[in-house]
Simulated scan of single mutants.
Amino acid sequence: MAITIKDVAKKAGVSPSTVSRVLSNHPRISTETSKKVKLIMEQMGYHPNIMAKSLVSKTTNSICIMLPKSAEELFSNFFFMELIRGIVTQAGRLGYDVLISSGANEKEEVEGVSRLLNGRRVDGVILLYSRKDDPVIDFLHDNDHNFVLIGRSEQYPDILSVDNDNVQASYDATKHLISLGHERIGFVSGPPELIVSKDRLKGYLTALHDSGLESRQEWIVEGEFLQESGYRAMSFFMNLPDRPTAIVLIDDVVAFGVLRGLHELKYKVPEDLCLISFNNIPLSELSTPPLSSIDIGIYNLGYTASQVLIQSIQNSNDKTYQKRQVIPHRLIVRESSMYSVPKN
């Protein structure tokens, strides 16, 4: 015979309503009581009826991750995988399951989150990216759904978001190269519709301006968060008559493409070209040479986004919490940018 809530309550010496509150992670249940009840559930082999619980509580204890529309970009970039790891870890600790949604275009993305939210299959959504004029954000905001943006929104500055100070991070990366004596510094950006591309470009340009250095349009290349974008950018830069001596790259994976191309052409890093990028994924330390990178705390971005979303779901009437969480960044200097320009 199936174990019921009443059976668990009797064994734990608490009321059935207390067991229900433990299952829903109610904030008024003490940590001690919660641990005791959960241990007895495990010992008795009790598994809650999620569908019935959802009908009663009007919650699903599930959240959705909205993936970028480019699957190639997602599965070839460690950034997204580490971000998802942080989200899933914290969601699991708080008793929430995670569903994943995607779409081939913006229309399909909106339809996907609409089905999940209006069909009461999830309680909220985490967006892994921020775009200009994003219809998914419009839909979530206009319909007062629970959601968190990893990034920032220019249109809705008051929404829940978790982000880095990408302008300052890019400024710090560029100033590092300037401190080594570099005056001709290039920048490999991401897709222009992404806010992170805009912010990091702004930081790069501001650092050049503050140091009295020239910025040239031909030293700025746009691309995707893929190795091939770095490979193509490298070919472009190295064929310029007045090429940069250092480059800021928007992503480590893009930097790997640059390293591959430079190696094929027998150029040396950092002697012929200094590089610094963003994200500090584990492979950046293992590349040849090891890659200087801005550590943006990827896991912490995902972990915090999950925590913030679930907090907003469980305390929907509490509007006192901070709307924008900023995760600090760190400059990690490795061999790819350990070369000072010789003074004349």
Results as ranks from 00 to 15, higher is better:
residue 53 K to V: 10
residue 283 L to H: 08
residue 295 D to M: 06
residue 100 I to S: 08
residue 314 Q to D: 14
residue 217 Q to S: 15
residue 86 G to I: 06
residue 270 P to A: 07
residue 119 G to L: 03
residue 221 V to E: 11
residue 261 G to V: 03
residue 250 I to P: 00
residue 122 V to H: 07
residue 132 K to E: 08
residue 23 L to A: 14
residue 121 R to K: 15
residue 140 L to T: 09
residue 156 Y to N: 07
residue 196 V to Q: 06
residue 211 S to L: 08
residue 244 P to D: 00
residue 314 Q to I: 03
residue 315 N to H: 14
residue 320 T to M: 06
residue 335 E to V: 05
residue 55 L to S: 11
residue 299 Y to A: 13
residue 244 P to K: 00
residue 246 A to P: 02
residue 4 T to Q: 02
residue 77 N to K: 13
residue 146 N to F: 11
residue 298 I to Q: 04
residue 217 Q to W: 00
residue 343 K to C: 06
residue 284 S to M: 05
residue 191 P to I: 11
residue 136 V to F: 05
residue 60 T to F: 10
residue 137 I to V: 15
residue 179 S to R: 02
residue 87 I to C: 05
residue 12 A to E: 04
residue 203 G to I: 04
residue 168 Q to E: 06
residue 191 P to A: 11
residue 181 G to V: 09
residue 272 D to R: 13
residue 315 N to T: 06
residue 228 E to C: 01
residue 98 V to N: 03
residue 245 T to S: 15
residue 107 K to Y: 07
residue 131 R to L: 12
residue 280 N to H: 09
residue 234 M to P: 01
residue 329 H to C: 09
residue 10 K to D: 07
residue 36 K to E: 14
residue 220 I to L: 01
residue 169 A to M: 06
residue 32 E to T: 15
residue 17 S to H: 13
residue 180 L to R: 09
residue 143 N to A: 09
residue 125 V to M: 10
residue 321 Y to F: 14
residue 158 D to R: 09
residue 245 T to L: 02
residue 20 S to W: 07
residue 38 K to F: 08
residue 268 K to I: 10
residue 3 I to F: 07
residue 314 Q to Y: 02
residue 301 L to V: 03
residue 112 G to C: 12
residue 37 V to S: 13
residue 322 Q to D: 05
residue 54 S to L: 08
residue 231 Y to P: 01
residue 165 D to P: 00
residue 287 S to P: 05
residue 330 R to V: 03
residue 175 K to C: 12
residue 314 Q to N: 15
residue 197 S to G: 13
residue 5 I to H: 07
residue 257 G to K: 04
residue 22 V to P: 14
residue 127 L to T: 02
residue 149 L to C: 09
residue 266 K to R: 09
residue 112 G to I: 01
residue 12 A to Q: 04
residue 306 S to Y: 02
residue 145 H to T: 01
residue 64 C to W: 04
residue 125 V to Y: 09
residue 203 G to R: 01
residue 200 R to L: 09
residue 62 S to T: 15
residue 118 N to D: 15
residue 58 K to S: 14
residue 162 V to N: 04
residue 235 S to H: 10
residue 101 S to N: 11
residue 315 N to R: 13
residue 293 S to Q: 01
residue 26 H to D: 15
residue 207 A to H: 08
residue 232 R to N: 15
residue 112 G to A: 15
residue 193 E to P: 01
residue 166 N to P: 00
residue 265 L to D: 13
residue 298 I to K: 03
residue 195 I to K: 09
residue 86 G to A: 10
residue 186 G to E: 09
residue 151 G to E: 12
residue 82 E to P: 01
residue 88 V to M: 12
residue 196 V to C: 10
residue 97 D to I: 11
residue 95 G to Q: 03
residue 311 Q to M: 06
residue 296 I to T: 13
residue 269 V to Y: 06
residue 232 R to Y: 03
residue 107 K to M: 05
residue 104 A to F: 02
residue 236 F to I: 11
residue 182 H to W: 00
residue 140 L to I: 08
residue 265 L to N: 14
residue 35 K to I: 11
residue 246 A to H: 03
residue 318 D to K: 12
residue 176 H to R: 06
residue 332 I to S: 06
residue 101 S to H: 00
residue 305 A to C: 03
residue 74 L to M: 11
residue 342 P to Q: 04
residue 276 I to G: 12
residue 331 L to Q: 00
residue 190 G to D: 13
residue 209 H to M: 14
residue 238 M to D: 07
residue 320 T to S: 15
residue 170 S to R: 03
